[in-house]
Structure formats: structure tokens, C-alpha cells
Simulated scan of single mutants.
Amino acid sequence: MSRRSIWSPAGATPRRAYAQVTDKDGNLRWAPTTVNVDNHLIRPTLDPAAVAANPDKAVEDYVASLSTLPMDRSQPLWEFHLFDFPTSEATSTAAIRVHHSLGDGMSLLTLLMACTRSAADPTRLPAMPPLPSRTGAIYQRPRPSAGVLAIVAWVWSFVVLAWHTVVDVVGFFATILFLKDPHTLFKRVNHAETQRKRIVHRRLSLDDVKFVKNAMKCACVDMIKSGKESHVKWGNELGFIILPFFIGMHSDPLDYVRKGKKVVDRKKSSLEVVFTHVAAEVIFKVFGLKAASAIFHRMISHTTISFANMTGPVEQVEFCGHPIVFIAPSGYGPPEALTVNYQSYVNTIMINLALDEGHFPDYDELLDDFVESLEHIKNAASRLGMHHRKA
């Protein structure tokens, strides 16, 4: 993994680019090279009949085929695949393929946002949600005049933090060494990374999600703030949190939210993500890329599903003068059968699935289930609010 980014933030000069080369010892390293933009702009030739019959599926099928094709390592590892025909969502589509060695999801999305401008005012960067204020005893340093109980609660919060961190770190290493998820329909048997992955998406209402969040008193964390690119470290800053994934049926749809909230609240009182990030850095520097990749692959192979979420602009943005209708990031390298990504943009949340076609042939029905589940949860939250008002 490299901390070098192929692009520079908007306005930075000169443009630098790097390609992966193999040295005399057989190790990969980054070498500066010249960028020929034409080599990175790809206009696929698709079957006209397939495009006319179903343009959405034509794009979807082509993007799925990319998951089986290696990138050209003789040049910088990024590509723009351009589809200049209308789909049900937009007049044209760009599929951007970027090798994960260039950066993590946060840095790459921040870089993309730095290249866009507000559609309402092209002279400024897009508006992003404000950063949240941290709450909880650990963030509230007691005043000198605070009572004994307040000081004890503050100290106890650090004890709880340390204990939860130890437990989570032990669980993390146990997952790498021997702890495996049981085999279910979600678990992938074949871990071949060249297995074809289909990437599909569906829109959810951000207002509906916020309504449920407020009704259930859940917390959210925003990651990026417009105009603060200096706060984002370019490259890969990876950390992991292992979450229990409960499969079961509940009569009350809100029980799913309650159980998830309980798990996440517990994880917030832990430094697991910080420790796993540091551990990944140490393993990479001490044992090298191959060892780090093998350990990462083993850890992911022992789990069932990967989740990731990113915060996007709260207003429509333009890229090179073209309005962006939707943003749907994902990845197809992990060996799991299903990867779930959430991306907010204006008043929508795009749920994006990268899935093994063999495991999920009815992926449209799976996407419908996400939409239907949110509707059931929202309706239950509405009834909960009405009950509280009557009480």
C-alpha cells in the first residue's frame, strides 16, 4: 500500500503520477511516469441491441466484467469508463476504477469532491454536513468545581474504554488466527479474488433514515468537511471494527435498530479501530506487503460481510461542468460474497452492493428488501412517536 496519490488536490501543480514497477529483487515500488490522459479515458463499445433493450443492465454488465480484468500496471492505476447514452438515472455515466493502493475510500472521495464545484455556485466547493460534536463522559473533562461523582464517572469512562479495547483487540487477533463465522447463505465458499462481482445500487431516502435515527435516538458521525482537505490524510488509512451480525426474525421492526444501536454504542467506547490501523501499519512496515495482504485476506475470509459508509455533499455538485446525479462507490477485491456500501448525497442514500452472482442471483430482490425493510422500520418509528405523544 502506498501513501502516494496519483492526483493532486484541485489547483495543485505540477501534476505528479506514479506507476507500479518491479525492482531487481522482485518487489513492487512506485516510479514517476508521464500521464497520458487518453490512456485513462475509456469509451467501451457495447452491443447496440443490449443498450437499446436495457441501458441500465448494459452498464451494470460491463462494470461487472471489470471485476475480472486486471489493471494495466505499466501506467497509473486509475481509469474513467465513459458511457455516453442515457439510462434511467442519468444522460450519461462514468465508472471510475481506482486501485486501492492509491487511497482509502475517504481520501479518494475527498479528492473527487475537491475536483467538483457547487451546482448553485460554481466558484466554490460543495457544501458538506457540519462535523458533529463529540459527546459522552470521556470527552467531557470535569471542571475543578465538579462533584466527586462527576470525577469518578469521568475516570470510570477511561476504565471502560481500556477494557473494551482489550476485549476487541483480542477478538480481532482471534479472528485472524482461528475464529471464523459459521457458514450461512451469506458466507462465500470460494475465496478466489478473480471471481466476478456484480455491483448494483438502489436509492433510499436520507430523510427517512434521519427520521428513524431521531426517533430511536441514534448517533451519526460525519467524516469530511468541505474546504478542509488538509484534515484528510491522503493514501491508505485503514482501520477495522468487527461487528456481530445477527440473523433472526423480530415481530417489531425496531428491534433490529435497537440491537444494532446497542452494538454500535458499545463499539464507540473502544479504540479498536485505532489499534487495528496501527497494527496494519506495523505489519506492513515490518513484514512487507505480501505478509500484510495475506493477513488481511485471512481476516476478511473469516468474516461474513463488509460494511462501509461515506458522507457526501448536501447539495448537488458539478464535475467539469456536468451535474452529478448520483455517487455509488464500492469495491470488488475482498473475498466475501457481499460488500455493502452506503453513500449519502443531497437528500438520498445510495446503497451499493458488490456481490457474488453465484450467491445472490436474485440481487434485484435483495435490493428491494433493503427498501422494504426501511419502510417497515420507518412506519414502526412513526407509530412509536404517536404513542409517545399520546402518553
Rank of each mutant, 00 (worst) to 15 (best):
N379S: 14
D369Y: 13
A174M: 14
K210I: 03
P122Q: 02
A294N: 15
K233E: 12
V170W: 09
T348Q: 14
H277G: 15
M310H: 06
K197H: 05
P253M: 03
A150W: 04
G26N: 07
M1A: 15
G227D: 03
S5W: 12
L109G: 04
E272K: 02
M1W: 08
V159M: 07
D362A: 09
S226F: 03
N341K: 05
T303R: 07
N39W: 08
K378C: 08
S373Q: 10
H81P: 02
V159Q: 03
N236L: 01
Y18D: 09
V317H: 04
P55C: 00
L28D: 15
D181P: 03
G312H: 00
F80E: 10
G321W: 05
W30C: 11
S65A: 07
P130H: 02
H388F: 10
S92H: 14
D168Y: 03
G11D: 04
M1N: 13
D208F: 07
E315Q: 04
N352E: 09
V264P: 06
G171N: 10
I295F: 06
K267N: 06
A391Y: 12
D38L: 11
R73S: 13
K267Y: 05
P334K: 05
S230W: 08
F240H: 09
T13A: 09
V98W: 08
L374Q: 12
I199E: 08
F296Q: 15
L46R: 12
R97F: 12
T13C: 07
N190R: 08
A119G: 03
Y139G: 03
T311A: 01
F173H: 04
V35D: 00
G239F: 04
I283L: 10
P70N: 03
F307K: 00
C218V: 06
G385A: 04
L82V: 15
I6N: 15
R117F: 02
W156G: 06
T45I: 08
F83W: 02
A328F: 05
R298D: 01
I247K: 12
F307L: 14
E229K: 00
L206P: 01
T110R: 00
G26Y: 08
L185M: 11
A31L: 09
E372H: 08
S251Q: 14
I176M: 12
M249R: 14
